[in-house]
Design a binder for these strands. Structure first.
Lengths: 303, 303
DNA sequence: CTGTTAGCGCGTTCAG
DNA sequence: CTGAACGCGCTAACAG
């Protein structure tokens, strides 16, 4: 009986039909748990998320990536489990529990959560995994998918340059720089675009910008690119107190419907979060099925 | 052996210790699947979410509620599964799959997704459930938890009144009104607060407001309360084209860090989404354990 | 109190 | 090609 349901070939037409009929009759639903117990697979993948990140700040990231993941997971007839994890509280997390109990066939881990401790746990348990976002530390055998932040920053910068803006600065946060790889990539992309246009790159933290306030909050820039959205919000706070002298353009990597209602124009670039979720899930399934992967990682270009 | 792990009382100290030692020694991890198969429980609850809702619009709702849910789910040593569902595509949804395969012990369903079809499926399968948000249709035996939107609207309205604003209108969308119960509640709360203050309530759709544009986009109001955030965004779009003649205050029920940077002041009220998640999950566990519930539903007051 | 055994519902043999 | 038996790891019921 299990043979017909699982598409085994060695089955006569007649038997198959007979089984199918009874299946319909009793409207039989296979028990995934039992199936899993017998085949030692769970037909479930896990998605790990940051418990500490309580910010309700417009965070399309989470939802969009999830959307993509769910898409392919559903198509494969899998389900997916959410696993919370507190930073540096690995043992107490439901993530650790799920992995050690082997309640999933593979996991997706956001780069912010992918510490060396997480990595070794995964390795020890032999659990397939894909990191969402480029990992903060390089190690052979780690598969990941990320947005091509260098390329996105170049595109965004070029867009400002094409507008005739020559004085363009980029704002970053010192702490983010060591914590999030994408901040470095965005700065890098900005530099390249400026270099190609023969313009001078100017990088500053919010504090440095404040020091240059003789020229307003923009430090003599016509445009400011914010490496993260929260920096943009911080800058806006300060601009309320000390408005910049000259007109200024703002730009960021996240989109918000509020942008067009801000006093200053806010330019942004579309980042394909959903695609990232899809690619990550596809990669994970390849690992689960031990398919040979063409490449250890994928970078998704922004449009 | 199963007896000691599951906290059975009829066990001698000596045996318990002996078992525990061996457990440590082999660092044994119980297999939840097998446990589930034997006890016909899954130690998992499902959270159903809207697949069609692709809007990355500042939607703290989802995340915040999830946060609360995860909190209590984790504390109970359960896990939770995400189940997508397309509106009016019940059969094809992973929600239906999870429920009929009994891969969870109970589910949480957002009111927007809680149709009669969903209800009868749940009933047929005998699956415990809690609706997140007040259901659109009344039926005995449905348990739900919601924000007290009437109270929240009253609080928000009063806050505007206390500011000395007398001409306060509320904006709603005709379609939302039939689809989302909370819109009705918010209008109701607004009415009450206005009534108590002896002020005249003025309700309008965005279209009606446009008609009154002789007096600007606000229709002679000093303040506008938007029943949903997307309406606020729509209004802002129109205000860019035809700015209101007089100064105007805006108010809404969702918070966004962008609000304070909008040309007009935006007042908002804190809605305790996380609490809603906690209460919903608690209620679900009560149902799963067949505990007697004090009340069929819970309304959470806004601060 | 404790050791033993029969399923839970499937996949996977192994004979026929 | 097909039916039957066994085992996945655990709980629950049954004797001791």
């Amino acid at each position: 009986m299990s043979r017909v349901l699982n598409g085994n070939t060695n089955i006569s037409e007649r038997t198959r039909d007979k089984v199918m009929e009874i299946v319909k009759q009793y409207n039989y639903v296979p028990n995934t748990l039992a199936k899993g117990l017998a085949s030692s697979r769970t037909y479930t993948v896990g998605f790990c998320y940051d418990y500490t990140e309580k910010q309700a700040v417009s965070n399309p990231f989470f939802q969009m990536v999830l959307q993509g993941v769910e898409d392919v997971v559903y198509r494969r007839n899998f389900l997916f489990l959410m696993m919370s994890m507190q930073r540096d509280q690995l043992d107490a997390s439901s993530f650790a529990k799920v992995v050690t109990e082997r309640r999933v066939d593979g996991v997706l881990v956001p780069t912010q959560l992918f510490t060396e401790a997480v990595h070794s746990l995964l390795l020890r348990e032999g659990m397939p995994f894909v990191v969402v976002g480029e990992p903060m530390f390089a190690q052979p055998g780690i598969h990941w998918v990320d947005i091509d932040n260098v390329q996105a920053a170049m595109a965004l910068t070029r867009r400002l340059i094409d507008r005739g803006l020559g004085q363009i600065g980029i704002v970053y946060d010192e702490a983010d720089k060591t914590k999030d790889k994408f901040v470095l990539d965005r700065i890098e992309g900005y530099r390249r675009a400026m270099g190609e246009a023969g313009l001078q790159a100017k990088e500053a933290t919010l504090e440095r910008l404040r020091g240059m306030s003789g020229n307003g909050c923009g430090g003599a820039s016509q445009a400011l690119i914010f490496s993260t959205e929260s920096l943009l919000l911080d800058w806006l706070d300060e601009a309320d107190e000390h408005p910049p002298a000259d007109s200024i353009h703002l730009a960021t990597f996240d989109r918000s419907p509020y942008h067009r209602h801000i006093k200053y124009g806010v330019e942004s670039i579309e980042i394909e979060l959903e695609t990232m979720g899809i690619e990550a899930a596809d990669m994970l399934f390849a690992l689960i099925e031990k398919t040979e992967l063409a490449q250890p990682y994928i970078k998704i270009p922004a449009k």
